[in-house]
Design a binder for these strands. Structure first.
Length: 118
DNA sequence: CGCATGACCCAGG
DNA sequence: GCCTGGGCCATGC
C-alpha cells in the first residue's frame, strides 16, 4: 500500500458519523488529486474499519461502481447515521458536509440545521 | 518499458 | 443545465 493511501485513510477516519465529505475535499486535505481518493476507497477490504461510506462525490451522490451502479450498502449505512436523501438520491452537502480537520476554525455561517429536500 | 483503466473534478463552450 | 477535454497517478498487464 502506498503512503498516499495511508494518509487518505487517516483523513477518512476523522469524518464523524452523520457527516459526509467529497473525494475532492479529502484530496485537498491530503494533497492528492480527488481521483486517488476514489482508488483508495476501492482498494479497501469490505471489513475495513475505515468509514469509506462517508465519502461521496461533488454532486452529493453516491458514486457508481465499475458496473455503473451505486453501492446500496453505502446508502443504508448513511441513512442509519441519520443522513437524509432527497427523492433523487442526493445528499445536501450544505448541511452534512464535513469541512476537514480545521472546520472548528471556520465560521459557522453556511451550516444549515436542516437538509434541503427537493 | 509503454499502455489502459479507473468510487473524480474543474474550466470552457 | 449539458457535453468535452484535460489533469491527476496507482495499479495491472
Amino acid at each position: 500500500m502506498s503512503s498516499t493511501y495511508h494518509r487518505i485513510y487517516s483523513v477518512v477516519n476523522l469524518i464523524p458519523a452523520g457527516q459526509v465529505t467529497t473525494y475532492g475535499q479529502v484530496g485537498h486535505v491530503v494533497g492528492c488529486p480527488a481521483r486517488q481518493v476514489g482508488y483508495a476507497m476501492a482498494a479497501l477490504e469490505s471489513d475495513s474499519s475505515v468509514p469509506w461510506h462517508r465519502v461521496i462525490n461533488r454532486r452529493g451522490l453516491i458514486s457508481a461502481r465499475r458496473d455503473g451502479v451505486p453501492d446500496e450498502r453505502q446508502r443504508r449505512l448513511l441513512q442509519a447515521e441519520g443522513i437524509v436523501f432527497s427523492v433523487l438520491g442526493v445528499i445536501d452537502l450544505t448541511c452534512y458536509s464535513w469541512r476537514g480537520p480545521d472546520w472548528l476554525f471556520l465560521s459557522a455561517e453556511g451550516m444549515n440545521p436542516l437538509p434541503e429536500i427537493f
